Amino acid sequence: MRRLRRISLWRAGAPLALLCAGLLFATSATNARGTDLRPSRNTTLAGLVEEQSRRSASLVRQHAALTQDIEKLQAQQGSIDPVLSKQLKDLSDAVGTTPVTGPGLTVTLKDAPSQVVKDNPDVDADWLVIHQQDIQAVVNALWAGGADAISIQNHRVISTTGIKCVGNSVVLHGVPYLPPYKISAIGDRRKLQKALDDSQYIENLQDYVVKFQLGYDVKNESSIAMPAYEGTLDLQSATVPGFPRTPSTSPTASGR
Rank of each mutant, 00 (worst) to 15 (best):
L4E: 11
R6H: 14
A14T: 14
A14C: 12
A14P: 00
A14W: 15
P15A: 02
L16F: 13
A17C: 14
A21C: 09
F25Q: 07
A26G: 02
T27C: 11
S28F: 15
T30D: 15
R33S: 08
L37G: 06
R38T: 08
R41Q: 06
T44V: 09
G47A: 12
S53I: 00
S53N: 11
R54Q: 08
R55Y: 15
A57F: 15
A57C: 04
S58C: 03
L59P: 00
V60W: 10
V60Q: 08
A65K: 03
D69F: 15
E71Y: 14
K72E: 15
Q76L: 14
Q76D: 07
V83H: 05
K86S: 12
L88Q: 03
D93C: 04
A94T: 07
A94L: 11
G104T: 01
D111A: 02
D111W: 02
P113F: 04
Q115M: 10
D119W: 09
D124L: 03
Q132I: 04
D134M: 01
G146Y: 02
A147N: 03
S151T: 13
I152H: 05
R156Y: 11
R156W: 10
T161L: 08
G162Y: 13
G162M: 14
I163G: 01
N168Q: 09
N168R: 06
V170F: 09
H173L: 07
G174V: 04
Y177F: 15
L178Y: 01
L178P: 02
Y181I: 00
K182L: 10
I186N: 00
R190H: 12
R190F: 13
R190M: 11
K191D: 06
Q193R: 04
A195T: 03
A195C: 08
D197F: 06
Q200H: 11
Y201W: 07
N204M: 14
L205D: 06
Y208H: 01
V209I: 03
V209Q: 10
V210T: 06
K211H: 12
F212I: 05
Q213I: 06
Y216V: 02
D217K: 10
S222L: 14
S223L: 15
I224V: 12
M226D: 03
P227H: 05
E230F: 11
T232G: 13
T232I: 10
L233Y: 07
D234V: 13
D234P: 02
L235P: 00
L235C: 07
Q236E: 15
A238V: 09
G242F: 14
G242C: 08
P244G: 05
T246N: 12
T249A: 15
S250H: 11
